[in-house]
């Protein structure tokens, strides 16, 4: 944790909301994307992300050092688990239950002027397939895949966020990758240069 971040945390712990908001701006994209990939619904992800920062502000006194990012993501992860638990008790046939937003991968990002339409469509199709694949994973594998492969976090930090040991992180990551690999392979969405049968 940098000195600047430490300074912001200490200031926020003294009640300076603007200092906390600077921390929010640092991590809101990461938190929101974690929530979105976990829940598959942009509105639910926004609600959980907001609740995460509110909870973090209220409980800043309990942050005893270490990586602030890990602490924040742990709050977000637990909040996502709570939402998913409620969903299980109230099953729905909506897209939300499938973990796929109705506009996933389509129309929400700025068009790349240098990108061919076919490539853009393929990119959107891939993003939608990945989100469907993530929704198909058990929650414990899903969060590890998101933190490791989508957000690029190290095993140790993932263990801190999820509360699991390193061995469990490795196991969940390998199983999650294998399942996603199968889904993408079935959809012929794996990049050709890596595909063993494409050459």
């Amino acid at each position: 944790m940098s000195n600047e971040e430490q300074r912001l945390i200490e200031s926020a712990q003294r009640g300076e909301v603007e200092s906390f908001n600077q921390l929010v701006r640092l991590y809101e994209s990461r938190v929101y994307n974690l929530c979105y990939r976990m829940l598959g619904d942009p509105d639910a992800a926004a609600d959980v992300a907001q609740d995460t920062f509110i909870s973090a502000y209220r409980n800043l006194g309990r942050f005893r050092g270490g990586m602030f990012r890990s602490w924040l993501l742990r709050i977000a992860t637990n909040a996502c688990y709570d939402v998913l638990r409620v969903r299980k008790r109230r099953p729905s046939t909506s897209l939300q239950a499938l973990g796929v937003a109705d506009d996933d991968g389509i129309g929400f990002d700025l068009p790349d002027l240098g990108e061919r339409p076919d490539d853009a469509a393929l990119r959107h199709e891939l993003a939608a397939a990945i989100q469907r694949g993530l929704a198909d994973l058990p929650e414990d594998q899903r969060v590890v895949i998101i933190l490791s492969d989508i957000q690029g976090m190290a095993y140790e930090e993932i263990a801190a966020v999820t509360g699991a040991n390193l061995g469990t992180v490795k196991s969940r990551l390998s199983r999650g990758r294998a399942r996603l690999r199968d889904i993408l392979r079935a959809g012929e969405l794996l990049p050709s240069k890596f595909r063993h049968d494409g050459g």
């Binding site: 908001n21 929010v24 701006r25 809101e28 994209s29 938190v31 929101y32 994307n33 979105y36 942009p42 926004a46 992300a49 907001q50 920062f53 929400f108 990002d109 990119r123 891939l126 993003a127 990945i130 895949i145 492969d149 989508i150 690029g152 990758r177 294998a178 996603l180 690999r181 993408l184 392979r185 969405l189 794996l190 990049p191 890596f194 595909r195 063993h196």
Partner: peptide, 22 residues
Amino acid sequence: DLRATAAVLRDLEPRPLPRSFT
């Protein structure tokens, strides 16, 4: 295949924020 899967996930674009959470 596993490397390709990890690469696809790594290249996934982050979803833009719907609003600020400050």
